[in-house]
Structure formats: structure tokens, C-alpha cells
Design a protein around this nucleic acid. Sequence first.
DNA 1: CTCCAGGGTT
DNA 2: AACCCTGGAG
Length: 351
Amino acid sequence: MLAWYDAHRAELPWRASRDPYRVWLSEIMLQQTQVETVKPYFLRFVAAFPSVEALAAAPLDEVLKLWEGLGYYSRARNLHRAAQIVARELGGRFPDSIEGLLALPGIGRYTAGAIASIAFGVRAPVLDGNVIRVFSRLIDLEDDVTQAATQAQLWRLAEERLPDERPGDYNQALMELGRLVCRPREPLCAQCPVREHCLAFARGTQRQRPVKKAKATTPHYHVAAGIIRDDAGRLLIAQRPLDGLLGGLWEFPGGKQEDGETLQECLRRELREELAIEVEVGELFTVVRHGFTHFKITLHAFECRYVSGPPQAIGVRAFAWVTPEQLSDYSFGKADRQVIAALAARRAMLL
DNA sequence: CTCCAGGGTT
DNA sequence: AACCCTGGAG
């Protein structure tokens, strides 16, 4: 594995050094996110925050803005909290033990093992989606890998196989092998350095591994959102609560349609509940579809005229009246970014 | 369009 | 076991 890694190791921005800050930042970004997606975000982050102290000193909104589009925004909030703990309570030094790392928000068993082994040379295993795939094929595992008992078995396997020498490189080699060779769909077994030891290869079952139970079908919701303008042409936007879906991100206010109400009724209700305002709902401006982990939405964005009631942050963290140009200063999720793109296209057409 | 990839928290 | 996002492949 190590010989293969030495020959095939990819040059990645976070592999330029073993600086624990950069290893940590890259590992958080790489959670549930693929290498190519992470690259530009990592480079922007280290340019904006060259040290854990710089990150700790930044306002959360600035961190969320740099995270915009990367998804799983609780990672950004935990990253910020962890930076403040490291900078203020640990003298700027990252823990070098598994236990110390696990105590930081956003770090679980995988990330602790990755940081400890890569940045500090500790003999600690990792088990991510890539490693699960490699091992489940090596031993031709027929058990459902989403089950806790199977995961425990795979962690034991990762621990047993881990060499004393260069554990960080070995872990990265396993993950790199899973990413580039032992790929999910069409594994490149001809190029695999461990194919002689692979039971699935011997039996021709690579494509059936790993075994995962089928996912339940996801519900579909209709959401109404208001593009609310005042007489000066400014737009009313709201910041979502810090916990939960898209926590801390901004949005065009609105919410889920309930049984028996029209989208227009839904929008007026949501705006009363969240902001205590009355609006006149106008034309449907655009419709956007978006999928999440466990449900999908169709977002209906309506032109609205602000009528009355000074906005109050009841069901939202904050609100702001902004010009269309200022929208880029705020962090939005993907669906609302599509609405903003449609707004920009409309403006470009009118000019 | 649907399906799938990818860890941590509660 | 439910919850949390986006990008790419087919």
C-alpha cells in the first residue's frame, strides 16, 4: 500500500504541509464532500484565515459566507467553535491524542483518526466511505455496512491492518485507493495493488460490494417564499435559526405549504408568524426544485409588496432590508441562490 | 429526472 | 435511527 501511495499520491492543497490546522480544516471540509469540490473552498479559507487564531477571531457570518455552497452548514458552525476552543483554551495548539481531538465539536472517530495519524504520526485507524468500500471488497463482506455491528467489525479490521510505520500515509493510501481505483461504480481492478488479496475480485462480486440497505423514498414539499420589496426597491431577507436545516444561512422568507391552503395563503401566514408583517402577494416570479438528504422541495418565489408592520425577528435569527447588489454579501443555500440568479437575469434583461 | 457519493450529532 | 446538503453520473 505504501509503495503504491508513494507512486500515485495526488498533489492536493492540504498535502503541502502537516500543519494540524490545515489537516483539520481539510478533513472537516472532506466530510461527506468530494476532493474536487473541496479544493477551491480550502484555498479561499486558508487565504482568509491563515491560522486557527484568525479563524477564531472572525465573526460566524464571515465563516458561513466562505462556506456557502459547500453544504452541511453545521460543519462551519462547529469549525468556528472548535477554533475558538483551540485558540483560547489550548494556546493555539491542536490536541495530538484521539481523546483530545474527539472533545472538539465536529470531530468524530474518523476525523480524530485522520488528524492524529496525518498531522501527528499517531497509530490510529480511519474508516470513511472509501475505506469501507475497500475492506468490504477485500473480505467480500455480505453484511449491510450501515449496521452498527458491521461498522464495529470494519473498525477492528482497520485497526488490525494498520502498520506501525507511517500510519498517516497508510490511511491516506487506503482512502486514495478507494477514491481512484476501488471506485464505487467501475472499480479499476487491473490497476489495484492488492487485487491478489481481494476476495470480491476472486469471486467477481466487486460491484455488489459494499452492501447497503435501500433508502426510504423521500417526501416532497412545496415551499412559498416572498421577494418582498419596499418603496425604495430594497428586498427583505431573513436569517434562519442557527440550529437545524441551513442553520445560520439567509433566505427569502416563507415556509412549507400546509394541507388545504394555497401557496399565497401559505406565504402570508408564514410572514405573519416569522416576521409579523403584512404583504400583498403578487406574481409568481420563479419556481426552483431542490433535493435534500431526506426530502425534496419545490420552491415557489412570489413577488410581494410590503404593506405594514415593522418586521420583528420572531421565527428567524435576524432580518435585513438590502439592495439587490448587497445580496452577494450574505450566505444563501442553493435553492435561494437560484432565485437570486433569476433576479439578476431579470435585471440584466431590463437594463 | 433518479440515484448515489460522502461523517457527525443528537 | 433520524437529521443534515450539494455535485456528478447515468
